[in-house]
Amino acid sequence: MKKGTHHRLYLLLRIGLLAWSLVPMPASAGDSYARQQEAMIREIRKDVERTVDYIGKDRLDPRVMEAMADVPRHRFVPERLRSIAYENRPLPIGHGQTISQPYIVALMTDLLHTKPGDVVLEVGTGSGYQAAVLSALVERVYTMEIIPPLAESAEKRLRALGYDNVTALQGDGYYGLEAIAPFDAIVVTAAATHIPPPLIRQLKPGGVMIIPVGGPFMTQELIRLTKNEEGQTRSEHILPVVFVPLTGGH
């Protein structure tokens, strides 16, 4: 048998094993969420080490990892999906939206380089998970969601879980929050066709924006935009991702 044929058979076998691994296995009774969360953190650490070429570092900010270990992700997913809440994968949260993969949440949070006194804007609240992770790292988080039922449920969830430094608002994130701006960091967790100029204007000099840019429902590019003290911006590609669109088709 030729080498190429061996290679293909090997690949098909791997795809088969992958397919098997994709079958959702409910957590056993003794498997606590805490244990699953620890496993998720280990998984993220491993993934970070293996993506050193993309992200330029082999470990994320320990504060970010602590926040990831503290936030109960299972409270941010639909009840029927709680058993797989800590798997390193995105999950549907209804209304065509998803809660991002934990690795991506950790990476985007790390890329923001937040400090304890910062004020951060998040565009695309979704279930509120990203805002909850940020709340442990900064002074205040403003988060905006355009879809009314999602905004409402996220606001209730964040309040119930005691994330008091998070303000959840319903509205079009394209225009940011002029009344509160400028922000030390802005994180957009929905895809846009371009970087919205109003958001660039609302970024403080020295601030960082993380945004996935590209067409809806296709591979987007995660971009980090930094604004220097003179107000000039610079952008760099981090990695390809898939996000649901910044609703409103921006």
Binding site: Y174, T193, H194, I195, P197, I200, G215, T233, G248, G249
Partner: peptide
Amino acid sequence: RVPGSPLRRAPGLAADCAHEP
């Protein structure tokens, strides 16, 4: 048509653009 939050497709819009789509 989306009156409240209109579609604003503008792929490649310059970051310092003074005009909104």
